[in-house]
Amino acid sequence: MTDYGQDEILELVWTLREEGRATRSQLLRRTEEDQPERLIEELAAAGLVESSGDDVRLTKPGEERARVIIRRHRLAEVLLNNLFDLDNNQVESSACKFEHILTKTVTESVCTFLGHPPVCPHGRPIPRGECCDKIRTEIKPLVTRLSDAVLGEEVRIVFITPKSRKRLDKLSSLGIVPGSRVRLLQKNPSFVLEIGETTVAVDKDITDEIYVKRT
């Protein structure tokens, strides 16, 4: 478990640096770890941080590692907050777990899935990953809300997160379920979808709840 403790310290150093208060005293005050002093020593021994007096700095390898942790954490926050509408406490505790366990591939998939978001729900920047660079020419995320889909393009429904069961029933009786292919025809003055040979007009907030993938 010491690895997790080290991760937490690295993460905190990064966050404090963003706030412009990367000092050892702040670090010790804010951390939730049991033996922060020991963790800092370990990190210093591993060559990930440098500490002198009240000063705490990330070394180059430390910087790299912290960057990955922060990236996973904030991507997880976006995922849980935007997509699943979870409350803050839930988001925080889960994101803290996610940051340790996501592999590189999974992280990149999540990042692409979310459309390479630049900031977390708290407005802090999400460090860019390789996938973000590669994708420059293609700005559209893999999965978007139907309301953000490109007009006239056929997309496949991935999942639906409706407010009410009744709405879900109604949509499914019209054939709008995950796996169905739809086309967004217009957004103004109302949203109009085409599914098979059926044209359906719906509220915007319904199309906000339908997540689609390009085919």
Partner: peptide
Amino acid sequence: SDFILEIPP
């Protein structure tokens, strides 16, 4: 209620 209306051809 929700606005979900089929538009005929």
